[in-house]
Design a protein around this nucleic acid. Structure first.
Lengths: 149, 149
DNA sequence: TCTAAAAATGCAATTAAGTTGCATTTAATT
DNA sequence: AATTAAATGCAACTTAATTGCATTTTTAGA
């Protein structure tokens, strides 16, 4: 058994909550842990399934509010999926901006943390830039081979 | 009176429909004309209001289907708004990729046609890129002065 | 020009994401 | 342990978007 990783992630979640002076609740700890360990960004549905099965959250609304709060605090970030829902992810370091890749086939969203949208363009006069959202779309490595047959 | 511009836009709409071998219907012509003349990308709501008032479309569903079709044909393009709805816009030349700017305050979406997301990064192994979505967020020129007081 | 077939439209009903208000419970502080 | 502000649970609601089907319209061919 390797409970080590789980413990680490849990500690990390706890540390992040402390860092933003947020109350430690089972819902927040659990959801944040899910967002930290997941390989891809998770949809509300996926999170709900995971969180209600394990008894972390009893209600959809709580999950919505927890996620909103995590994003607000800068602990998690959310990406707009092409099916007009959101997907959520968290990293060890507090949300540094990076690009995302969404697969047209499986709809998974991958964080491309090495791909930081650089400011190599000039905005027209008068626009005040606050945030950049760079989303790439195509086929992910898992789906690509299947197509090639 | 200058009906000239309207005529031009109408002709352009018709020409675009022909170009993709699409049937010419009042709904398509009218909606496309709206999307061509608008300064910013239009929400479904804004379009619905405009299109039903002028009698172009009698039903929301038709508008949904018309917009889907226009996007499918590459005549119009849609941008995901931060309120998890879509906004639509059309250009004279068939949808060349460009960046968008959405104002945090008024929610308007502007097409930055001169700002083409260049491929100056390298995707991780295995990802097949098909589309780039570059969305900037902040305050637009119209809203900026109001804040400054 | 008239007609047939395919495509587009309108209408009613439904799905699904997300929100709001309020009563109850819980985490942190004393 | 008691207090209090914040978080949770529950029920009801809002709104965007979709589906199925009957009707109408466009287009192409006789």
């Amino acid at each position: 058994m390797y409970p080590m990783k789980t413990n680490t992630e849990q500690n990390l979640a706890q540390q992040l909550l402390w860092k933003v002076n947020g109350r430690t609740t089972p819902a927040r700890l659990g959801v944040l842990e899910l967002l930290l360990t997941a390989k891809t960004a998770l949809s509300h549905q996926e999170l709900e399934q995971a969180a209600t099965q394990t008894g972390l959250v009893a209600d959809r609304v709580t999950l919505y509010r927890t996620l909103d709060w995590l994003v607000e605090q800068g602990i998690a970030h959310r990406i707009s999926s092409h099916d007009r829902t959101w997907r959520y992810k968290a990293q060890a370091e507090l949300a540094s901006p990076h690009a995302h890749f969404q697969c047209r086939q499986c709809s998974q969203v991958f964080c491309l943390e090495n791909l930081q949208p650089a400011l190599l363009f000039k905005l027209p006069e008068g626009y005040q830039l606050e945030d950049i959202e760079l989303k790439l779309q195509g086929i992910c490595p898992t789906c690509a081979p299947k197509n090639a047959t």
